[in-house]
Design a binder for these strands. Structure first.
Lengths: 337, 337
DNA sequence: CTGAAAGCGCTTACAG
DNA sequence: CTGAAAGCGCTTACAG
């Protein structure tokens, strides 16, 4: 394969200096006849500027790229969040790296270091909840760091969150309003901020309703659908089972749906899921959810990122995006028994 | 913010030459005492190598990054595909850019050009089906191009596809085996290769079963769930409605599910969807699907990409990944009369 | 305005 | 083995 043409080649063919080619490529008008000669040479050679070389010498040193680290790009919540970041970045001509940590702090760090080594201008992180003190050093590489979905531990930076506690509390009050007192809570790894917050919202709502919390109804560290299905079956087999479930993450919701159906209890046990799911409205009963707005989370954090890149020096901001209760049937089942 | 330390700073602090620092950073042993001095200086300064500058001068000119262009990263199919590419890239220390074309050829081209300008080593493209002749020029920038999910039009390159026609034919034969003769086909934009292929599989299977195709049962250019719901309702209102539906894309399947349920016909009209969906197995009846294997598609195309980067000069390869029929109930409903 | 020279942060022949 | 110099593909002072 032939070597790719450089500015030098363009300059030689056009019979002008390298500086002139650089100016034309960067939109500096200059003498029209020279600009035209350069443009012709560019077309003939099929010249394409190397943005990484350009970035190396440019005063602002910006690469027009950002990195996004989520738990799993294949999870619909994070996929939508990625799309939000991408769309906002696109409005600025910025391209987006994406990576999945699988909630593993080592992988998170590898991704972050990989992105900064490639000179991203900004880095949006869904922190896994482990030791993130390494981020302090990363910040010194010049990348602008922000958090989304969960706040950082060590670092204070711009952060965009869902109203996790508020959403969970809304779910509890909703179930309570439909007569439930024994409400089970199925939560993800407690290392994860959102899991802890949703549990906190559950506890606070229970307390404010003067409901005693039966600790046997709180099941934590449930990290996938299969585990959630098992835990659900176990809860329903208890001597004194719950009359309602609050599943605090999308894959947990899926597992609970399967377990309820396999036991033929989906019309008898109330259920509210945190985070919406495609087809949740097509089930019978429809699954009542506390919907998050992941695309919006991505757009909001993207907005904050570019405000920083534009030079804002405000103190770190924290934006909390409200959740929405969507009643569809499963959360409006009255307690039986 | 202080300037980030460079190799020059490390060299000065360690009291060695720039070359020595470069060697240490690149793992060349050299004199142990010098290596140790350099390492100490690196730690003290918090030095981080600039990979883009490194790439500029290195003989192989590789950036350890790849780009992926899909229709929409928020669509679960493409999100899983992205995850497959990411996982394979990770095994080689390569990071992944992701972008959404929304089936728009201009956006596709902007993404491709953006990625090549940033010197990606490889580019995996889900082509939108428009004029992709611009790719010939992109290829000359040195990036290795591959296609996934759909083949290129102009360019012949390594390609990984699902067995679209075969999967659609399997769906038709399955419905036929359950007694159906009037099988409707709901397809996406015909500009999209997979839509055309699935229609082809439908027609070929109908022909080989000696079933006359009623053209009024073929509805194309259905590009989102809402349109699919409308088309489904329209089909079911026909004087001579179909007894079965084949919905040829995941969002079309979602729309049809909603329409069938809103008409209370989900237990009477048979339905097979192309591409699996989360919760499809929790519906009543479960939705029978022709499952694709998007993560596998991503991993396979990633494998081909790295074989090329490793120097394979074979003719362009085409891998076709089989689909899997998953019977869950909706596809096994007998025709009603 | 244009062009020659220096330099961005690295790697790589090359000389010692 | 190490270090001084050249160079990757660009941009940016600087001189004319």
């Amino acid at each position: 394969m032939a070597r790719q043409p450089t500015m030098k080649d363009v300059a030689a063919l056009a019979g002008v200096s390298l500086s002139t080619v650089s100016r034309v490529v960067n939109g500096d008008p200059g003498r029209p006849d020279l600009a035209e000669k350069v443009q012709r040479a560019i077309d003939v050679l099929g010249y394409r500027r190397d943005l990484t070389a350009s970035n190396l010498r440019r005063a602002d040193r910006t690469s027009a790229s950002v990195g996004l680290v989520v738990a799993d790009v294949a999870n619909p919540f994070f996929a939508a969040l990625l799309r939000g970041v991408e769309d906002l970045a696109r409005t600025r001509g910025v391209l987006t790296y994406a990576g999945s940590s699988d909630e593993d702090t080592d992988r998170e760090r590898e991704l972050v270091q990989g992105f900064t080594a490639r000179q991203v201008d900004g880095l949006v992180i869904v922190p896994s909840g482990g030791d993130d003190s390494y981020l302090l050093r990363e910040q010194q590489t010049g990348a602008t760091l922000l958090f989304v979905d969960r706040p950082g531990v060590t670092l204070n930076a711009d952060t965009v969150l869902s109203d996790n506690a508020g959403g969970a509390a809304t779910a509890v009050r909703h179930l309570h309003a439909h007569g439930h007192r024994r409400i089970a809570f199925l939560g993800d790894l407690q290392r994860i901020f959102t899991s802890r917050e949703r549990l906190r919202g559950y506890r606070e709502a229970m307390a404010s309703l003067n409901l005693a919390v039966d600790e046997s109804l709180i099941r934590l560290e449930v990290h996938n659908s299969q585990a959630a299905a098992e835990v659900t079956r176990d809860l329903l087999s208890q001597p004194d089972p719950p009359t309602a479930l609050l599943t605090a993450q999308n894959l947990i919701t899926v597992g609970a749906i399967h377990a309820l159906r396999s036991r033929q209890l989906h019309h008898r046990i109330a259920h509210v899921g945190f985070d919406d799911l495609l087809l949740a409205d097509a089930l019978d009963p429809g699954v009542t959810v506390i919907a998050q707005h992941p695309t919006s989370l991505g757009e909001r954090v993207g907005t904050l990122l570019f405000e920083r890149l534009d030079g804002t020096t405000e103190a770190p901001r924290r934006i909390v995006v409200p959740t929405s209760l969507i009643p569809r049937g499963s959360g409006e089942i009255a307690p039986t028994g």
